[in-house]
Nucleic acid binder design. Structure first.
Lengths: 142, 142
DNA sequence: TCTTGAAGCTCTAGTCACTGGAGGATTTAT
DNA sequence: ATAAATCCTCCAGTGACTAGAGCTTCAAGA
C-alpha cells in the first residue's frame, strides 16, 4: 500500500495532480485509512503510469480517457486505439512543421541584428511589418 | 476611425481578444463614441498587428509586452530585443526536439499495429510499459 | 423621423491541465 | 508524548483566450 506521496515520487507526478486526476475521474477513488488518507495498490500505480506516459507522448486527458476505456475492455478491436494514436501523430507532425517555420523566421530576425540602436532593430522591424516575413504563418500559439 | 469589428477583421483577431488585450494593458484604451463604443486609429491598428505578429511567432504576451516597451523607446540598444528573440528561438528549438522524439515513438507504436484485438495492441502496450520506449521522454505537454 | 438588424457594450464563467496556498488533521519515528 | 513530515479539503490562480446573457448603440433604408 502506497501513500499518495510515494505514488507521486514513483511516477514523477505532483501530489496535487494525482488528486486532480481523481477529481475528474481519470483515477479511481482509492482505499482510505481510518484517518482518511489515500492508500494505493499496484493497480493504482499502473493506471497512473499509463496516464503519465500518455501525457508524455502528448495525448490529451480526453484521449487518455478513451485509451483507458479501450485498455479496460480487451475484447474489442485495436483499431480505435490505433486511430487515436494516428490523430496524435498527425498533430505532432503539424506542430513540428509550424515550429520549423517559426525557427527559420526567428533565425533570420536575429541573424541580421548587430546590436545597434532600437531605431533600426531587425527584430522589432519584422514584428512591425508582416510583409517582411518569408513565411505566411497564420497559426497562433505554436 | 475603425470600429472594433473592423479592427478585428483587419488583423485576424476576435473582438473579444482585442478587449482582452485592453483589459490586461497590452492595448491602450481607445477613444470612445458618445455612446461608448471603441474607435481605433492607425496607431491602434499598428499596435495590434505587432502583438498578433508576435503571437504568431510564438512569443508570450509577457515577451510581447517587453518588446512593445522597447519599440516605444527607440533610443536604447537593440540587444534586449535580440535576447528576447534568442530566448524564443531556443524554446522553439527545444520544442521541436521534443516533438521529434514523440514522433518517432508514435510512429513505432502505430507501425506495429495490425488492428488485431486490444489484448495485444501495440499502442496500449507501449503506454502500459514505459520500458518499451526508445526515448526517455520526460517532458509533459510537448 | 422611425425602425430594424447588425454590431457594440459589460460582466461572468468556462477552457486545459495543472499548481499553489491556507488552515487543519493524521501518521510515523523517536 | 512530542515533533516533523505528510496528508486532508477547499479555494484561487495560471495563460491566452472564448462564449454567452442581457442590454445599448449605430447606420441605413422606408
Amino acid at each position: 500500500m502506497l501513500t499518495i506521496g510515494t505514488l507521486a515520487k514513483r511516477t514523477g507526478t505532483k501530489v496535487q495532480t494525482i488528486r486532480y486526476y481523481e477529481s475528474i475521474g481519470l483515477m479511481p477513488e482509492p482505499e482510505r485509512t481510518e484517518g482518511g488518507q489515500r492508500r494505493y495498490s499496484q493497480t493504482g500505480l499502473d493506471r497512473l503510469a499509463f496516464v503519465r506516459h500518455g501525457r508524455q507522448l502528448g495525448f490529451s486527458l480526453e484521449a487518455i480517457r478513451d485509451l483507458l476505456d479501450l485498455a479496460d475492455n480487451p475484447a474489442q478491436s485495436c483499431a480505435d486505439a490505433d486511430s487515436i494514436a494516428q490523430r496524435q501523430l498527425k498533430e505532432v507532425e503539424d506542430r513540428i512543421a509550424r515550429l520549423q517555420a517559426l525557427q527559420v523566421e526567428l533565425k533570420r530576425m536575429i541573424g541580421d541584428c548587430g546590436h545597434h540602436s532600437v531605431a533600426d532593430c531587425r527584430v522589432l522591424e519584422v514584428l512591425r511589418d508582416h510583409s517582411e516575413c518569408l513565411t505566411d504563418h497564420d497559426h497562433i500559439g505554436a
